[in-house]
Design a protein around this nucleic acid. Structure first.
Length: 289
DNA sequence: CTCAGCTCCTGCGGGC
DNA sequence: TGCCCGCAGGAGCTGA
């Protein structure tokens, strides 16, 4: 699930739950996800206060008051579940709420807050990861050091893409998934952005002209910002519906729509599916060139 | 260096 | 109904 818009939505949902809170207790239900948890993780978190919750690419960063920052990556199936304190009223978007006793399968890291709320990292496939880094050197952490620009950063521009795509022969779709080129895109939004930009996913990156690269930058930004907006609103429903709906899925124009009619007005194309570098890509052969 | 295949892991939906 | 297969929102590693 978690690409940039989902992690951003989680971040926004966690802000009112976490910021200013003391972590009263920590429970670790295994020693590792994709990689081992850091040494003494529970001890290093216990009694720390949360200063801020931020995001870089698909990483959630929880800054603590003891000079350390907790880094979280959600892999393919990671989720944050909040069990509110009995006295807490209302819900905030971005996180999943459970008031009834929850199934604890795949709950790996549990943070008990002073407020009485509990924040749970749940990840069935365990491709996610957790680490701690010195706050003043977070950007030098190996997970973050090589990341490309954020899509909404000025540095992510047509000129930048032209530069990094130059002499690249790999399909543009594959290049967009490379976090060193642009940080935060995953399979869904790379696929959707190429549809919006009218660019064929198999086109070699280096063969795309300036005008179309400019369109691609705008398409990436628009699909991500719309997804963040939709995520925020639909997650309120999600919380009530107990987790069966997706965030932005009602708005997918090509993702997982093989055989469906192209949704671009006037286009009579049929959505096709191909596999690139092991990942499915969907596109309209008529309007993506 | 670039590129693509394989791998980690669990769950679910479709086909038979 | 139940079983088996393919596939899933990520990304590091390996080897051509």
């Amino acid at each position: 699930m978690p690409e940039l818009p989902e992690v951003e939505t989680i971040r926004q949902g966690l802000l009112p739950v976490l910021v200013g809170q003391r972590i009263a207790w920590v429970r670790l239900r295994r020693k590792a996800l994709r990689w081992p948890f850091p040494e003494n993780l529970a001890e290093r978190l216990t009694d720390a206060c949360v200063r801020s919750v931020s995001r870089r690419a698909k990483f959630l960063l929880i800054t603590l008051d003891r000079g350390e920052t907790l880094l979280m990556h959600f892999g393919m199936s990671g989720r944050v579940v909040v069990v509110p304190a009995a006295s807490v009223q209302g819900q905030s978007p971005g996180v999943f709420y459970h008031s009834a006793p929850r199934t604890v399968a795949h709950d790996h890291l549990i943070l008990g807050l002073q407020s009485g709320a509990t924040v749970v990292l749940n990840d069935p496939r365990r491709f996610g990861a957790v680490d701690l880094a010195p706050t003043d050197a977070v950007s030098e952490h190996p997970w973050l050091a090589g990341l490309g620009p954020e899509p909404f950063d000025e540095a992510f521009s047509q000129a930048y893409l032209a530069d990094v795509f130059r002499s690249r022969h790999a399909p543009v779709k594959t290049l967009l998934l490379d976090q060193r080129i642009v940080a935060g895109l995953g399979n869904i939004y790379a696929t959707e952005a190429l549809f919006r930009a009218g660019i064929h996913p198999a086109r070699p990156g280096g063969s795309i002209g300036r005008v179309r690269l400019s369109r691609l930058v705008q398409a990436i930004r628009s699909v991500l910002s719309e997804a963040i907006a939709a995520g925020g609103s639909s997650l309120r429903d999600y919380a009530q519906a107990d987790g069966t709906l997706g965030y932005f899925q009602h708005a997918f124009q090509v993702y997982d729509r093989e055989g469906g009619a192209c949704l671009r007005p006037g286009c009579r194309g049929t959505i096709a599916r191909i596999v690139q570098a092991g990942r499915s890509t969907w596109y309209c052969p008529k309007c993506q060139r």
